[in-house]
Design a binder for these strands. Structure first.
Ligand SMILES: [Mn+2]
Ligand SMILES: [Mn+2]
Ligand SMILES: [Zn+2]
Ligand SMILES: [Zn+2]
Lengths: 140, 140
DNA sequence: AATAAAAATGTAATTATTACAAATATGTAA
DNA sequence: TTACATATTTGTAATAATTACATTTTTATT
């Protein structure tokens, strides 16, 4: 997705496509690594020396309320962000702390207890040890 | 579950059953409302005037590491705690902020992308509006 | 160019959590 | 019981993520 289509996507959601907003969205789309606020700020401030962390927070909240991104609360201390709003789960490796995407089909999942509830958002968070770390641990 | 069986459960997990620990576990078992640290502290300090919040944090971390409780990170700002470690999902009403349990059968769920991963914990967090709030909103 | 509105900035405040050292309680051996 | 070692609890300070808010800068419109 290029600058122009990001811009159009923002306009479609009644968000004015300022430079900072486009850059933040662009970063989220390019980086699939579910960055936290500090990572987004530290990376983008290289390009935008005047960027402030508050702007990052404001922008992410704006995007979230518009449904353009998802907030991942898999960790207790900090929020992570994802421009991929399609249905998928997140796995956090407790060894290397990396967050992986995985495919999950929620359609047809058996649940009960939420009759007459309006479900707006579904989050699937798994934790454990990733294959890379298992491999590394086994060979050391 | 009475004091004695709580005590035994702690001993079984190599946790010395101190008064504070038993009371905190007892509170978590009785209250099914997924309290945060402040709620636990505020309620228990009535019975234990010398209780400190640090003890609540220490104890909850101890319980969590032993697998006796689950930490619910459905909210961005604060952790909530659940003594029910059986498989179930959590729903947060964005109107009344209450957290509901719901039944979910994860067995047979279709996932891919975690081949050779060791999954230790599975969390299902849904968000939306609960039936009570929908009803209230409709009648007002 | 003048003006108004929106966006970004910088700083301070808030709040959840952790670190850590001191105090207290507990259990055991003499 | 007393002395001692160990575990637990406490209180305070530090850390760190997030938000509040007033000020400055940018943008769009007349
Ligand atoms: Mn993702
Ligand atoms: Mn629960
Ligand atoms: Zn790993
Ligand atoms: Zn509700």
């Amino acid at each position: 997705m290029d600058r122009n289509s990001i811009s159009n996507q923002l306009i479609k959601n009644n968000i004015k496509p300022s430079y900072a907003r486009i850059k933040i969205m662009e970063y989220l789309i390019q980086q699939k690594n579910h960055p936290n606020v500090d990572e987004i700020y530290t990376e983008l401030v290289k390009d935008i020396p005047t960027l402030s962390k508050t702007t990052v927070y404001n922008t992410l909240n704006l995007f979230n309320e518009a449904g353009l991104i998802k907030v991942i609360t898999i960790e207790e201390n900090e929020a992570r962000f994802d421009a991929d709003t399609s249905e998928h789960g997140h796995f956090k490796c407790e060894n290397c702390n990396k967050i992986y995407d995985f495919f999950v089909k929620l359609e047809g999942i058996e649940i009960s207890g939420l009759e007459n509830f309006k479900i707006r958002q579904k989050d699937i968070f798994f934790k454990g040890i990733c294959a890379k770390c298992i491999n590394y641990i086994n060979n050391n």
